[in-house]
């Protein structure tokens, strides 16, 4: 644990900014799936590294929170380590790698395997918040489409997948319908994680730094993945088990382990994997 920095406001952002973001978050929670604009600040890291997620975390974190940060499921990648250190130093909060111990979890591209519980907040880093952007470049038009629930084009995307690949090949950032009203981009999490968003006891907050948008899914909200009647939503599955912990129910990364091209499959959620191994060792 590094020493807390002095000379900065608690959690780096000034209080006015945090209040502004919290007001945006309140609106986002009140209207699940609605994209709320906010006055994004310059952060001491580049766009694309989690500036949106960091601003949300900075706005909701308190001194008694316990923070976990993951990047692609791992607690020990550069990005996750940097952000964890950032808050340890600017807010002096306790950090953890244990999913169950964390009150705040900032994530890039994964939802932890361990079930979340009431009182926990999951904060997603979002690159492109607009699920309709792929087909409609005009912001005025996408806003209108949301306002009027003109979501036919979302299915056009899935139709194209099936026409081209014989199945819905969209594997991440798979669009969902939130609370029966707004279509939402769940950020580039694998569609494997989509079902975890549905009726989750945890509060889910989304921050897009470059595009300056917030959105949210309150606890126990319906989050339904879009699909066709004759091509229902399915999650990925693997023929292999995790090579390290033997888990059969987690999202696996394929890792090349030597120059001969040999590979193995391991849990992408490093904490979950370690927990499984500790349990079997114990």
């Amino acid at each position: 644990m590094q020493a807390e920095l002095t000379g900065y406001n608690f959690a780096y952002l000034d209080e006015q900014t945090k209040r502004m973001i919290r007001r945006g978050l309140l609106k986002a929670v009140a209207v699940p799936g609605l994209q709320v604009p906010f006055g994004g600040r310059e952060m001491p890291l580049p766009y694309g590294w989690g500036t949106g997620g960091i601003q949300v975390t900075a706005s909701v974190i308190g001194s008694d929170d316990v923070l976990k940060v993951i990047d692609q499921g791992a607690d020990d990648t550069t990005n996750a380590v940097s952000i964890r250190h950032f808050f340890a130093r600017t807010a002096g909060v306790e950090t953890t790698e244990v999913t169950e111990e964390a009150s705040l979890i900032q994530t890039r591209h994964r939802i932890p395997e361990s079930p979340l519980s009431e009182g926990q907040i999951l904060i997603y880093q979002v690159p492109i918040p607009e699920p309709l952007r792929f087909i409609e470049p005009r912001e005025t038009e996408t806003r209108k489409m949301h306002a009027l629930t003109e979501y036919g084009v979302m299915h056009v995307k899935l139709y194209e997948d099936i026409a081209q690949f014989g199945q819905i090949s969209t594997a991440y950032a798979y669009p969902v319908l939130v609370n029966g009203r707004y279509v939402m981009d769940p950020s580039p999490i694998p569609k494997f994680d989509n079902p975890k968003m549905h009726q989750s006891p945890a509060l889910q907050l989304f921050g897009a730094g470059r595009e300056k948008r917030l959105y949210a899914v309150p606890p126990y909200t319906d989050v339904i993945s879009l699909d066709f009647e004759d091509h229902p939503f399915e999650i990925q599955s693997w023929d292999e088990d995790c090579a390290l912990c033997g888990a059969t129910d987690s999202f696996l990364d394929e890792v090349i382990i030597n120059d001969a091209g040999e590979r193995m499959f391991v849990c992408s959620d490093t904490h979950y994997c370690r927990q499984n191994r500790d349990a079997s060792d114990g």
Binding site: V153, V156, A163
Partner: peptide, 25 residues
């Protein structure tokens, strides 16, 4: 939509009015 297939172009209006059956579309 020039970058969407012919089938997708025709199907869009059907999906826009609620058709959710790929085979039918």
């Amino acid at each position: 939509r020039l970058r969407i297939s012919a089938g997708g172009n025709i199907g869009e209006r059907l999906m826009g009015v609620g058709n959710r059956h790929y085979g039918d579309i």
